[in-house]
Design a protein around this nucleic acid. Structure first.
Lengths: 199, 199
DNA sequence: GTCTATATTGGGATAGAC
DNA sequence: GTCTATCCCAATATAGAC
């Protein structure tokens, strides 16, 4: 690593943390530069603008993460036996637990959905539309007697529960931790299966 | 109505709309005053500060809304026959559909949960902790064989699905409307019942 | 690639006239 | 209760030296 990428990385890490904590609009470039321990001008040199920095912060976590989701799904569909709903659900959710690949991905994804539409929409469309469509198709193959519209609703509610878990990690009153995310994900899968797999 | 309350109301309505659209941090007092058609100084006169305005915008929608939820629950528990899970779920969700009482409440609630913790937490604790606890108790009475911890998770996921519905109104790809909120709420209740009512 | 210094704009809040 | 005018500070972004 040269000093160049080092500065870049420090800015990205600081911005990521502050966006998660305070949101995009409430985070200033000054605060980012301060926490990164770099000069204010370096932020604009490397990313052009605050919005450019936002795009990069989001993309570098979510892109490899979504690749992993799709790889999981490919593996299931290439298998000899047809995947179960639980298999698909785990392919969709479990990457959030693989800390080595995307330790910050849960918080990044939980955060971006909470931004106003003007901020979040373009990023969501770009990064998630393929994944959402692939996984909905996978569920559709399992439940041929459920209408596409009904299936979209069920998927919608699943995503809502997942995002709420990613954002708060534990129910109000409990204190969040890495353990509670892992445990919560198991609860989520059991809960969601009941809602997804109805006649 | 005197001119006084009129100005107050115009500011509240404008702030409410802008907070929903852009979020708290991205909304300036100037933008609020402009949209309300009042002078900038009037905003500080009536609410002291931007944060005071936020508190009032939130409270005036959510307070009567939560009262209605609790009234619904009281009525159920005072009835001769024991309420079903569906009864309780409807008591919790249906106030979002009563446009005359709380036409903006769905969007307000959907929005406040998306604010950073520093903004949202104090408001959430103040306004929702009683309601959440009452409804969890009601579910606990129905499912005595499910542990309190497990029940908190299920309630947590239900709230996540509900908030996602309130925020986006329709699945990605569909276009949102009042009709889709109403229809979505029925889908949500069926979906959530399956997750809540497991052995 | 990184710094200092600064241009420029917009923010929240208030003093004081009416 | 409402206005005008303004204070003071923080924001994004860039110019230009090193």
């Amino acid at each position: 690593m040269t000093a160049t990428t080092d500065t870049r990385e420090k800015i990205l890490a600081a911005a990521e943390q502050l966006f998660i904590e305070r949101g995009y609009a409430a985070t200033s470039m000054r605060a980012i530069a301060d926490r990164a321990g770099v000069n204010l001008a370096a932020t604009n040199y490397h990313f052009g603008s605050k919005h450019g920095l936002l795009t990069e912060v989001f993309h570098r976590r979510v892109e490899p993460f979504n690749q992993l989701r799709l790889k999981n799904l490919d593996a299931l569909e290439a298998g000899s036996s047809a995947p179960t709903a639980r298999d698909i659900l785990e392919a969709f959710c479990s990457p959030f637990l693989q800390g080595d690949i995307a330790s910050k991905a849960p918080q990044i994804v939980g955060w971006i959905y909470s931004e106003p539409n003007s901020v979040a929409r373009p990023l969501l469309e770009r990064e998630f539309s393929v994944v959402a469509s692939r996984f909905q198709q996978a569920f559709a193959a399992i439940y041929p007697d459920v209408s596409a519209q009904e299936l979209r609703w069920r998927f919608h509610f699943l995503v809502g529960s997942l995002l709420h878990l990613l954002r708060l990690q534990a129910p109000l009153g409990d204190k969040p931790s890495n353990a509670s995310l892992k445990s919560g994900m198991q609860h989520l899968i059991d809960y969601s299966l009941a809602g997804l797999a109805r006649p």
